[in-house]
Design a protein around this nucleic acid. Structure first.
Lengths: 231, 231
DNA sequence: CGCGGCTTTGATGTTCATCAAGTAAAGTGG
DNA sequence: CCACTTTACTTGATGAACATCAAAGCCGCG
């Protein structure tokens, strides 16, 4: 019974392996008590740009998009990502306020832990510090690389790139329900909405993809890869 | 005399305040003994993309550019930066090999410390870990922001942005010797060399800048700000 | 069933890259 | 130090790539 009191679902959480691997049972227990799971529906905002950072947040299940509003009011999508590939506040120790907004693209569960608790762990447990830092570095690198990849491509190459990203990285399936609007894709890869649609229509005509409402099927992944690379 | 033996220029290094503030005298001493200062001339490569990471490096004096080679062989400049605003391996604990190349744009001094030593410090000294992590986060944020800023601008806006970056952030002077070629600017802001030159010529005609060889004078910073913002 | 938002397509014009050709500047070797 | 070579810079002309505008169709939702 005492055993049961000490049991904690955090022990079994997949995220534990990602950054909390080095915590002993006592700290996992403390983490479990202090953490707060929050549910978000599609479209709900998880963090607002400019809002004060009080919690360390990580995505447990779901799909989110990071974005900011540029000076002329346009939305710029920074990245779209899955659990373990996202920690809310990359600038966790460096900034007081969020630099980007985050919203849920699908039903999502976010685990929130008071930042002070994480900072304590960080100071007490060097291995935890290294794990967390590695994770955040990888995420940052990924964002920078993605942005540079996209920048050098032409329209078709960019659309191909983002379709491949969904099919290979996000859904790991040739068929998927696209979680974003055409406009969001446009904001992600830096082009106009009309041209995103036009390019996708071309892909349809060339039998590279098939579209049924929100559902997209990648019919010819090889051709898509070629377009993305050459783009 | 013993005192003198223990004295160390690292104690007075400006960088100490940036990330090494939390180290006690003993660790500063150890750092000082293990560190190796290396000098680079303009144009020399400090890190090669793909090379194994063995050292933690930071720029002590000078100016460097981070860049990578994109899939079609084009050079993409990621950022140009001054001391304290650059730590060689942002992916210090997450990657085995450099993801980007770094070269000196001006005579530069780089301080190299074996990575294992830094890792030890990181584990032993939580405050050091936090300082280092903050620094790296700030750098990453800066790169991401810069890239997004540039992406939404038109040609004139981009050139204005980069000129303002040099005059305000890098040289803190209205007059400066431009440390990069027109092609490097082009690779930095994602446009063709010819159009960088054309845009700068336009700025000259409009008396926004004056050019004498490598020397550039910002004649009308307000107009440049407007062009950058509107761009 | 009608309204508003998302999507689609075509037509048009702007922005920008590319090509070409020439000039200036900076190395390089005798 | 000068002729030669190479590299960087500059400008104009051209066409391609892309954004913008406009109008219409579709879909979901109240």
């Amino acid at each position: 019974m005492a055993k049961k009191d000490r049991s904690c679902e955090c022990e079994k959480c997949d995220f534990r392996e990602v950054v909390f691997a080095s915590l002993d049972e006592q700290n996992i227990q403390a983490l479990c008590e202090i953490k707060e799971e929050r549910h978000f529906r599609k479209g709900e905002i998880i963090n607002y740009e400019g809002e004060r950072i009080t919690d360390f947040k990580y995505l447990k299940t779901g799909l989110v998009k990071l974005f900011r509003r540029s000076s002329n009011g346009e939305e710029q999508v920074i990245t779209i990502t899955r659990p373990f590939e996202f920690v809310s506040n990359m600038s966790i120790f460096s900034e007081e306020r969020y630099k980007y907004s985050v919203s849920a693209l699908e039903e999502s569960v976010v685990c929130c832990v008071k930042l002070d608790f994480i900072k304590e762990l960080f100071i007490k447990n060097g291995q935890f510090a290294i794990n967390l830092m590695s994770k955040i570095s990888v995420i940052n690198d990924k964002i920078i690389n993605q942005t540079l990849d996209i920048r050098q491509k032409n329209l078709a190459g960019r659309v191909a790139y983002v379709l491949l990203y969904f099919t290979k990285e996000i859904y790991k399936s040739r068929v998927f329900d696209i979680p974003v609007s055409r406009k969001e894709i446009a904001d992600y890869i830096g082009m106009s909405t009309a041209n995103v649609i036009r390019t996708m229509s071309d892909f349809k005509k060339d039998n590279i993809i098939r579209v049924f409402g929100k559902t997209i099927e990648i019919a010819d992944i090889d051709k898509l890869e070629i377009i993305s690379k050459r783009g």
